[in-house]
Amino acid sequence: MDLFSSHDDNKAVDSLVINGEFMQTGYPAHVHEDGKGVVIEIPDGRLYYAPHYFTESQSDGYLQTLLACDGINPDCHDWHNEDSINTLPFRYIRWQQDQVTMFGKTHNLPRLSAWYGDDDKPYTYSGITLQPKPWNDPLIALREALLPICKRGFNSVLLNWYRSGNDHISWHTDAEPELGPNPLIASINFGESRRFLLRRKEDHKIKLEIPLHHGSVLVMAGALQHHWQHSVPKQAKVKGNRINLTFRNIKG
């Protein structure tokens, strides 16, 4: 399957590497052998970044599938004021509104989520334990699309739905014990472009920003999760939906 569709796309990938560095950041980079993305070498980690790994038509199709809900147009619906997310008739993904308790108060997370994977692989983060829902055809197809890059399968995927630029995720690492040492995390993005930020845990002045577009893929590898935090900040001007899927392996 040809996921990358045109000569112009190849030019766009080539332009990400300038004098052997990723977008003049000082971090060594080179075009991956697949021609679809670049490899970025950062201290204690490695990134693969393809700004348009999937074609626009494929990306449109996946976005519609992941948000499909009987009787609702996802592009027009006011999802932020929807009180029944957990009971709506979504066709493929059982989206839910998770909550966290801090300082004695319970708050909705500023995004919606879903956890899919092998039936014996629950996942706990920020005090929330997610029980996996079974794999379906769209998620299996996306998992298989990552095989040429990652050279491995995944037993779980966390989906986050950012309903607008007001939805976000704060600084964190994906270093939970059940992910094992030096986990490989593969991220697929559909919908609105959003900023993805990385910073060194021991020196927050050391940062890297990568724009995640409709159909992009970002893979984080090596010891990155132990030395770098990442976030998706608020962007008030962004009005549309963005879906992020992070494929991972739960150990044990």
Rank of each mutant, 00 (worst) to 15 (best):
Arg94Cys: 10
Asp98Pro: 08
Pro177Phe: 00
Asn249Trp: 05
Thr129Lys: 04
Gln64Thr: 00
Asp8Leu: 14
Ile250Cys: 06
Ile149Met: 11
Thr65Leu: 11
Gln99Leu: 07
Ile85Val: 11
Leu16Trp: 03
His214Trp: 04
His226Ser: 15
Trp228Gln: 06
Asp44Leu: 05
Lys151His: 15
Thr246Cys: 07
Lys151Gln: 14
Ile169Asp: 07
Ser57Val: 12
His80Val: 10
Asp118Pro: 03
Gly71Gln: 04
Pro138Lys: 02
His230Ile: 10
Tyr49Glu: 02
Gly127Asp: 01
Val100Ser: 08
Lys133Ser: 05
Asp118His: 01
Lys239Val: 00
Gln235Thr: 13
Gly180Ile: 05
Leu3Pro: 13
Ala186Glu: 12
Ser84Thr: 12
Gly191Thr: 07
Ser15Gly: 10
Pro211Trp: 00
Glu176Thr: 06
Glu21Gln: 13
Asn108Phe: 11
Gly45Ile: 08
Ile149Glu: 05
Ile210Ala: 03
Glu178Pro: 04
Asp119Val: 10
Gly104Tyr: 04
Asn182Ala: 15
Tyr125Gln: 01
Tyr62Ser: 09
Tyr49Leu: 07
Asp137Ile: 10
Phe247Asn: 01
Leu63Ser: 07
Thr129His: 09
Gly215Val: 03
Ser216Phe: 07
Tyr62Leu: 07
Asn86Asp: 14
Asn19Pro: 01
Asn136Thr: 00
Thr101Ile: 04
Asp98Met: 13
Asp98Leu: 09
Ser59Gly: 02
Gly215Lys: 02
Thr101Ser: 15
Ile250Phe: 03
Phe154Arg: 00
Arg111Tyr: 12
Leu130Phe: 15
Met1Leu: 13
Pro89Arg: 05
Leu109Ser: 06
Gln24Lys: 06
Ala175Ile: 00
Ala223Ser: 14
Asn241Glu: 11
Asp2Glu: 13
Lys251Gln: 14
Lys11Thr: 13
Glu56Ile: 14
Leu109Trp: 05
Lys237Ala: 09
Lys36Arg: 11
Asp70Ser: 14
Ser84Val: 07
Gln229Val: 10
Pro122Arg: 05
Cys150Tyr: 12
Arg194Val: 15
